[in-house]
Design a protein around this nucleic acid. Structure first.
Lengths: 130, 130
DNA sequence: AATTAAATTTATACTAAGTCTAAATACTAA
DNA sequence: TTAGTATTTAGACTTAGTATAAATTTAATT
């Protein structure tokens, strides 16, 4: 574990991801960088996203789609995906510790982490004429 | 929704997935079919897996790896992945209903379903000399 | 049994997302 | 300055899966 090395490219990508309200894919990040006047090599964007993820500065979300999404929020949290419109929202309440203890006991694993993706229908899709 | 049409290929694939103790990927399924004397076209395996998934006879697992895995167990359940050896085990205890209600209330979603993937270290990797 | 229609399989081309590689460039430390 | 390491770049490559069009199978109708 060596010290942080934020190159121009990595800094620009970090800033961009942190400024996003949503959870862009690598392709969307490249597009937005281009709109902001940056033009980095394809592989650099992937390298930087991995570097920033490994450094704990951003998070990679695997929500069951073909592409990963990235999130500037680094606190432990979960996501909920709308089946109708694809929108992704944050879920800040953590799974109860009691449940995790039960899972650890039953499976004989040391449980380090959990990824939870809820699926459902968001408020706007439930109330289309509001 | 039309009635079930289990062709030779679909039946063979269903039987194979149901007989597995583990959670094979499409590539592993093709390999095992070949070992059992079957030789189906590449696309047929993917088509059949989708057909069987849509029919509710098997489940597609997206555990954050590059490839989907398939599971002959159709009851609602979750998975735990060992970070060290990659082994995948079943988790049969469901998330507490209370927590799901809380998530629904906070996000304003109708929550239909949740995918949970735990990560940790399995018993064998914890006790390598046992 | 022959004929048509629909569904499925096959082979193969293609796509999307991401990794790998080798050369060029930038940064760091003596 | 010079050597050594790290990073970026461009582009080839890989993996997982989808799309397409022709061939085959299955089912339904006469």
């Amino acid at each position: 574990m060596s010290r942080l090395n934020l190159t121009t490219q990595r800094k620009a990508i970090l800033d961009l991801v942190q400024s996003c309200e949503d959870h862009p894919t690598a392709a969307e990040i490249m597009e937005r960088l281009r709109m902001n006047g940056h033009q980095f090599a394809y592989g650099t964007v992937y390298n930087s996203l991995r570097y920033l993820t490994d450094a704990g500065l951003i998070r990679e979300l695997k929500l069951g789609e073909t592409a990963s999404r990235y999130d500037g929020r680094t606190e432990d949290h979960y996501h909920i995906v709308c089946k109708k419109c694809g929108r992704v929202d944050e879920v800040l309440s953590a799974p109860p510790a009691e449940w995790i203890r039960e899972v650890a006991a039953k499976t004989n694993y040391d449980v380090h982490h959990s990824q939870v993706v809820f699926e459902g229908v968001c408020y706007s899709c439930k109330h289309p004429n509001a």
